[in-house]
Design a protein around this nucleic acid. Sequence first.
DNA 1: GCCTGCCTTGCATTCGAATGCAACAAGGAA
DNA 2: TTCCTTGTTGCATTCGAATGCAAGGCAGGC
Lengths: 333, 333
Amino acid sequence: MNRPKRATSYDVAEAADVSQSTVSRAFSGGKVSSEVLERIQDAARKLGYRPNELARSLISRKSNMIGLVMGNTNNPFYPTVMSEFTQELQRVGRRVLLFSVPAGQDVDAVLPEVLQYHVAGVIIASATISSKMARLLKSEGTPTLVFNRAIYEGSVNSVCCANEPAARLVAQRLLKAGHRRFGLVGGQADTSTHIERRKAFAETLAEAGIAKFDEESGLNSYEGGFAAGLSILGKKRRPDAVFCISDIAALGVLEAARHKLGLNVPGDVSIVGFDDIPEASWPSYSLTTVRQPVKRMVAESVSLLLGQIDGKEPVRKAVRIPGELIIRTSARI
Amino acid sequence: MNRPKRATSYDVAEAADVSQSTVSRAFSGGKVSSEVLERIQDAARKLGYRPNELARSLISRKSNMIGLVMGNTNNPFYPTVMSEFTQELQRVGRRVLLFSVPAGQDVDAVLPEVLQYHVAGVIIASATISSKMARLLKSEGTPTLVFNRAIYEGSVNSVCCANEPAARLVAQRLLKAGHRRFGLVGGQADTSTHIERRKAFAETLAEAGIAKFDEESGLNSYEGGFAAGLSILGKKRRPDAVFCISDIAALGVLEAARHKLGLNVPGDVSIVGFDDIPEASWPSYSLTTVRQPVKRMVAESVSLLLGQIDGKEPVRKAVRIPGELIIRTSARI
DNA sequence: GCCTGCCTTGCATTCGAATGCAACAAGGAA
DNA sequence: TTCCTTGTTGCATTCGAATGCAAGGCAGGC
């Protein structure tokens, strides 16, 4: 590999008959007379010169890469999130350095690697952050934002959906429509999304005098939802309403109900999801669900993180974006 | 932002009472006596030192970042691809610098930006590369791989599905099963996936004496497929078999057929897709389709690119991975 | 005891761009 | 004319780690 040497600022400097410093200033917004600027741009164009971002980041001690750490990739909600983040960050001139958390590992393993790249900030989606890592990030001074997980301690910003009012509303509407036996298909038990949605749902039922409901884990995957659906709806006294912590699990439940158990949805059982992934709106499902406004959440996340990078925003902020109940036909509501 | 200074190799050197060079060697596999190595590792642990990847890449003139350029993100096939690439590259110790091609723009706009980061290689997925860019990449000496698009000229490697035999097989099976009026729901007309699949399909029909078939663009999106389905199946003399260039469009066609036009699938019309996205296997769809073996394609892509980076592989290679016809119930076949 | 050779370590330089400071030119005020 | 101001430009240094080369230590062979 005799990799051809790329043109550097020195090459351009020589060609334009100026010093390297001037070339640098020409490309980073410094003061340069218009006549010289033109000469430099001409030379740069001829040589195919573009500043080396690595050198730039090294000397200026600030990179414009953002580390994006993604956990679970089974759930089609997250590809959407990832793609929104990439586009939004790109729009504001930032680059995305992508990390995925390998199945079975946790974020702690990859975060140090992210930091080796001296990213300007870190976004953690679909995963929580241990207090050990929170401390690490703080001591390194790397602004961090956790997406779609609430952080109850530490100094990390977070943006997530207002889970509790949304879950409460779902329970209220189901109750009001006359449902009496409930089921819940959860996600990972230790995530804030699961905990908060479950808690608000359970409390609302309890307030109406319903102390118990069936519960299964849907693992935030289609297959998990399918299995949970079979189990929860296969019983003699099956629920007449099932609330699912994620749409992808809800679709699994729906398929199991219709195609495996021969149930009518919503005739025999109402099914409600959470997320509003694209599939939820397809006619075969027409899933009633809580929409997480991804675009808004992502935009808010990015602006919060950028503010923190620029040192303007307060250190600790937990933003909650309200969800929206989308009524379709999978529930009598 | 008084960003706390991070520990450098000099700090570690001082703490371990060795020179900076020795610290560097300790972290990059050079020769260091075991006694000294231990001292260095102790000091590094205490200081929380990790080598700065940017400085490393700058001096050694090789980064371990791979630029991943993604086009179309509507099609759920690509999130899968992206996630597989991320995991596979991470597995071999590479990082992914992610770029998305903004809607309406082409790859030419983002490639120069990718190169500013002096990535070790570039993977372009879901988009083609102009010959101008191919020249640029060659002159910069950046190994490049195009995924899921055939490249007919230039010196760029590519990995894609063997589209023609697969499409031919679909046509043959549909013919054999007695279908006589055909429809095709295509993707973007200028992509090799569209062109190759369409061509093989058309040729096979022609060989059987069927010169004409209805054609619509499904835009490789659910909505596009839905609209195409309405148009193509809403006619008086509608096709009894529709082949779709992508699963996501096929699902749109299927929904339109069933829920808008009241057709029975496969009773009234057979529908066949291409990709085998997860949704295709869900009972509501049970889509007969051609599976693109994503894992194999990705693994092959990565190994090809790495080979090129290490200077071992030949410069030009077009790998074709055979697809597999997955028979489900959306087609009488 | 001395020389040879290997192994480990340190010194000095390098990658490519940013930036504080000094030098300089041009223009205006006194 | 002289002095001062303002605006450009260049010089020298810096970021943090890798690496060629030379120096030093130590063992083995003679």
